[in-house]
Simulated scan of single mutants.
Amino acid sequence: MKSLAKSILAISLVSGGIAAHAQADELIFAHGANPGNPRYEAAQVFAAIVPSCSSDLTVNVAPSATMGDDAEMLTSATAGIIQMSANSQGTLAQIVPEVGALGLPFLFENEMAVWRVLDGPIGDQLDKKAQQSGLKIVTFWDNGFRNVTHADKFVKEPSDLEGMKIRTPPDQVAIDIFKALGANPAPLAWSELPTALRSGTFDGQENPLTNIYSAKLHEITPYISMTGHQYQSTPVVAGLGWWQSLSDEDRQCVTQAAKQAGWYQRGRNYIMNQDLKTAIKNEGGQFADVDRDAFVEATESVYKKYEEEMGSFVSDLRKAAD
């Protein structure tokens, strides 16, 4: 994880000055989502809006990890190979550790609380920290609240996770959550997950329902426990050198287009999560509620770790979430 941060910083120092002198007319907007995912649709909305407010920019959307995984996309954005990416919270946290704190266990009550925090001073603080590493956080889209799926059983209380081989994203907070719960977590790229589940490398995984359904993970791991243990955002980032090369008008255009597409994405994500239970049940998935209080108590040690590492930021974040 530290190697990604170092490579990003090194590339930003070398390429920042070059990118600042040359504005590409084509804006490559890369992401890892497949058709049917609200992130995929929102990227198309973004691409449609930008030409309406800028005569200088056209948008080329590169979906489905065609420009590499999330880490590769961040590196490419810093180097000016692509201009923007709808990326992942865990991967960006390898560069800006405070972004990972958004995923502290059971931090947010609901999506509305999340949006209020991300669109306020906390989001501004995270953007300033990202700029120190050559990236600009334009806005935050949703990824959603994550739930555990298993091939053979429900996970209704922490003891059900004991020894479970579970895939997580490359997110240290997620790894720490499942270690605290007694599981055996390991990170793996999203694009490799279905194959790894089919092969039995993992007993299960955890994701929001929209991701579970769009990737058909419920067909492989049909036991879905509604843990809601962690929220994850989709930070929309730009290479800082490219961003600084834009005119004020184009920066405003891109910002507003990303935010407008973000409200579409947030709404689609929210509605889909309300409706997907029925669709998943119809396709063989099963659902169970969990002992939330037991999970909250079992993961309290995760807060202690990050309060020691990040100090006042975690307390500020908890106050904002409340």
Results as ranks from 00 to 15, higher is better:
Thr66Tyr: 02
Gln244Thr: 12
Thr227Gln: 01
Gln232Phe: 03
Glu300Phe: 00
Glu192Trp: 02
Met112Leu: 10
Phe145Tyr: 11
Asp289Ile: 09
Phe287Ser: 01
Asn273Ser: 12
Ala189Met: 05
Val14Lys: 00
Ser159His: 10
Asp56Pro: 02
Trp242Asn: 13
Ile280Cys: 12
Leu240Gly: 07
Leu92Met: 07
Gln230Lys: 01
Leu161Tyr: 05
Leu104Asp: 04
Thr66Trp: 03
Ile28Asp: 02
Pro121Ser: 13
Asn273Glu: 12
Asp142Met: 13
Ala183Leu: 03
Pro222Trp: 04
Ile220Trp: 06
Ser214Ile: 06
Gln252Leu: 15
Glu297His: 02
Ala5Thr: 04
Ser88Asp: 15
Gly228Thr: 04
Gly241Cys: 08
Asp293Thr: 10
Gly204Pro: 01
Val254Pro: 07
Asp293Pro: 00
Arg251Val: 06
Asp160Arg: 12
Asp289Lys: 10
Gly120Leu: 07
Asn207Glu: 14
Gly17Ala: 15
Gln94Ile: 01
Asp171Phe: 13
Asp160Val: 13
Ala71Glu: 07
Gly182Asn: 09
Ala258Asn: 08
Ala48Gly: 15
Glu300Ile: 04
Ala298Phe: 00
Ala174Pro: 00
Lys156Gly: 11
Asp56Arg: 13
His229Phe: 08
Lys179Met: 05
Asn147Leu: 02
Gly228Pro: 13
Val237Met: 11
Thr255Gln: 13
Asp142Asn: 13
Leu209Met: 11
Glu206Gln: 10
Leu188Phe: 02
Thr201His: 09
Tyr306Glu: 09
Ser133Lys: 06
Glu162Leu: 11
Gln265Tyr: 10
Thr299Val: 10
Ala113Cys: 02
Ala174Glu: 04
Lys156Thr: 15
Asn60Glu: 15
Gly123Phe: 08
Lys304Thr: 14
Ala93His: 05
Arg292Trp: 00
Leu118Thr: 12
Gln256Ser: 15
Ala10Ser: 12
Ala298Trp: 00
Ile8Ala: 11
Ser3Glu: 14
Asn143Trp: 06
Ala42Pro: 10
Asp70Glu: 15
Gly163Thr: 05
Asp289Pro: 09
Asp56Lys: 15
Pro97Val: 01
Lys179Ile: 07
Ser312Asp: 13
